[in-house]
Each structure stands twice: as structure tokens, then as C-alpha cells.
Nucleic acid binder design. Sequence first.
DNA 1: CCATAATGTGACCAGGTGGTCATATTAGTG
DNA 2: CACTAATATGACCACCTGGTCACATTATGG
Lengths: 238, 238
Amino acid sequence: MENLQPSARTTFSNLPPEKQEKIVDAAVREFARHGYKKASINTIVRDAGIAKGSLYQYFHNKEELFVFIFERFTLLVKKTVAEQGRSNAVRAREGESSGVGQEDDFFSQVGRVLLAGIEFIDRHPEYFQIYLRVLFEQDVPMREKLLAQVRLFSREYFGPLCEAGQKSGAIRRDVPLAVVIFILDATLDRFLQGYAQGALDRDLDLVQRNRAELLARIRMILQVLREGLADGGTGQKA
Amino acid sequence: MENLQPSARTTFSNLPPEKQEKIVDAAVREFARHGYKKASINTIVRDAGIAKGSLYQYFHNKEELFVFIFERFTLLVKKTVAEQGRSNAVRAREGESSGVGQEDDFFSQVGRVLLAGIEFIDRHPEYFQIYLRVLFEQDVPMREKLLAQVRLFSREYFGPLCEAGQKSGAIRRDVPLAVVIFILDATLDRFLQGYAQGALDRDLDLVQRNRAELLARIRMILQVLREGLADGGTGQKA
DNA sequence: CCATAATGTGACCAGGTGGTCATATTAGTG
DNA sequence: CACTAATATGACCACCTGGTCACATTATGG
């Protein structure tokens, strides 16, 4: 009577937390494995240990469930980004450098963004898989709207950063901003995709043990982005 | 009696060519639109104008049809690569530079590879879509085997090129080959993905008219790859 | 303890899937 | 022409999909 909106009969958020968790876990796992369209509601309810009818009391349909899960992903992203500065500071206090420079120079900032991405994948590999699936699947319901909420590195995120970089003289000015952003976006995105691919198989221990190697590789990539591939740059010989 | 292998009852290649073409077209369109798993056999036979039973006389199952289509893709790729040098030569004779240098220097070669990719997408956008779908879909039947047959830019293709580049002194030697390949691969791959996204919508005329712009952008990307993003390189001011 | 409301349940639905096979059609041949 | 072998056909199958709904179960409170 009081709720004219077409809404679920029972609010999901009123469920006991452990039940919520089971459902979310099952949905995240299934969506990460199969993307939106191929994900099976039947599998989700089976894994969550609830009846299908119950799920449809919390969410009107598959789409609403998926949007709900994806919104949790964007929340997690924002949380990780917010924690990024603090965690870097902690590492610095403990004597371990963040590995890509603490300064505010342009490339150190880029490196820290990349590290934040890695941190996120370590903590939430399945959520990141869902993000990738949305990126590459064509017929996800609210695709554009969902992606607009995150857009990890692309124009919206790197735009201001690169603009500032050009103004401060850190980045060459004879190349359009779009080209700069394109190369950064392509490289960082690909790096995280590769990292995520591995993060799902490898156990976390291994990932942590190889952290030094990882940092070294990031530093080299940043160096190449800065100085170029051609011989005769600033850092010719090791 | 004579054929013990589990094979199709009727050989597809014995069909009249126009019928073959209809079937291939329908299959390519459907696989490009929906990837392997979500592609519908029913849609394919409807679009091809044949009965479902007929299709299953030419191919045992969906997988065999898909592998057949993908193999046509790899053939097209090899054909395009083979024609690449010749078509560049023709353009040069007609007075229009290839746009990214005719010399044999490393970055000109990279540019020409990129141009060959664009050429391919212009001619066969739907086949390229299928390739992308295989790249991003997890549960395509022969995925690894299929991809190994092409691997557009990655290690197998860029490996020798970059190695030669390092030996000839065109590329810096203080960075591992893998890092060099990674950045090249990421950038070129992303560029072609973006180009393919547009090539499916835009009509070919528009694509051709913007060729000058395209070449300019490629030249800039190559320049950045060569000299780096940082200010103070060789080409500081326009 | 009972009445009522809220919530959980799974058989069921229409529609779609890849795949099959008895039958109809066509082609080839003597 | 007729007989046979090859090919084309689509109704049909078992299975799966997202979604529904009459009913069972539980919770609430008078």
C-alpha cells in the first residue's frame, strides 16, 4: 500500500548477515565465472542454500541482483582508493618503500595508482573478474552506466592527472593529452588484467613472496613509459 | 564402412559455393555477435536458410563448426600479413607514403604491423570480433590451441622483432625483452581493439576519409613509444 | 493458544538450447 | 522409367534458462 515502486517484497538488507553473505558469495562467484548472461540463477540459489523463490523476494530479477553485486564492487573500489594513501604511508613508516617512489612527481603517482589496483585484485579477485567481464561482454544490462561508476584508469581518471602533469612540465607537451592517456591506460589496464588472471589461481602466499619482483617490473614499465623504448635515452646502460 | 573416424556424413566443401558462403556468413555473424557459447545454432541455420539437420551433416557439433570458422580467420590473417609488404610497396609507388616510414628501422616495422592490423579489421571486422571474443571468453572449446595459431602481437610475433631491435641497437638494452614486448603488445592490442569497436558501426567510407587522422595518431603513438612520455626528450617542442 | 501476517519453498511454466532421426526429397544410374 | 543411394528436412528430445505462485512454514502479538 505504502510502496508504489515495483520493489522486492522482502528487503535483502533485513536478512541475517550470514545469510546475506552466503547469497552474495554465491552470486559473486557465479558472475565472476560466467559473466552476466551465462550466469545461472539456479546455480546461485543452490550454492547459497536458499530456494529460488526466496531470491526473487529479495531481487525482482537477475538484472537487479547483478546491479546490486556490481554496486558492491564500486564501493570496494572506492574504499581501496581511499585507503591507498594511508597504506602507502604505513609501509613507508615501517621502512619498506612503496616501491615506486613516495614523491608527488607524475610517474610516482601513476605507479601508486597501479599498486592500488594490485592491492584490490589481491583482496577481491572475483570482483575484479566481474568488472572485466562487464568490460568485454556486450549485452550486460546497465553496462555503460555501471562502467561509468568506475572507469579504473580511463579518461575520467587519468584526464586530470595527465593535464596536471603537462602543466607542471612532467609530461611532454607536443603530444595530445588523448594520446598520453591512451598509452597509460592501455599499459596499466593490460598489466592488471594479466595480474588478475594469475591472482585467481595462485595462492596469496606466492603473490606476496613475489612482491619484490612485481615492484621491479612496475618500476621498469614506468621507466620505459618515461624515457621511451629507443636506445640513447637517459638510462642507456644498466 | 571406409571412414572409421567420427566425421560428418557430407563434406561441407562439396556443397555449392554460394551455399557454403551463406552458411559461413551466418555463422560468422552469429559468433561475432555472441561469442561461442551464447551463439545459437538455431539462429545460424535460420539465417543461412538451411535445416538444422543439414548443418549437422556438415559438422558434428557446434564446436566443430566454430573451429572451422576460426580456422578461416587464421587463414585470412596469414593472407593479410603476407600481402602487407606488397600493399605497402604499391602505396609507395602511387606516391602515398605508408604513413609510418618505409625504412627498415624498428619502429617503422612496428608501425607497419599496426597498419596491417587495421587493414585486416577494415576487410574482416566480424572475424576480428570473433578473435576478440575468444580472447576474453573463458570457456571456448579449443581456446588455447586456437589462440596459439594466431597470437597477433604477443611473444611469438614480437619476440624475434624486438630481439633484433635490441641487437641492432634500436632498442635500449637495459630493460628485459619481456617488458619491451609487454608494452608494445598492450599498446598495439588496445589500439586495434578500439579501432575494431568503431569499424563495426562506421561505414567504410568514413573510415577511409579519416585515414590521415589515423596515420597521424599512429605516428604519435610510435613517437611516444620511442622517446617516452617525459618532457625533455628529443622531440620536446612541436 | 489462536489468528494473522510475513516469509520460505520448490513444483511448475514458457521459451530456448544443442543435438537426433525417421521421413521426404533429390540425384545418379542402368 | 524405376531402383537405389545420397542428401535435406523439421518435428522431436532431454535439458536448461529466468521467472511465478499456490502452498507450507514461521513469527508476531493479542
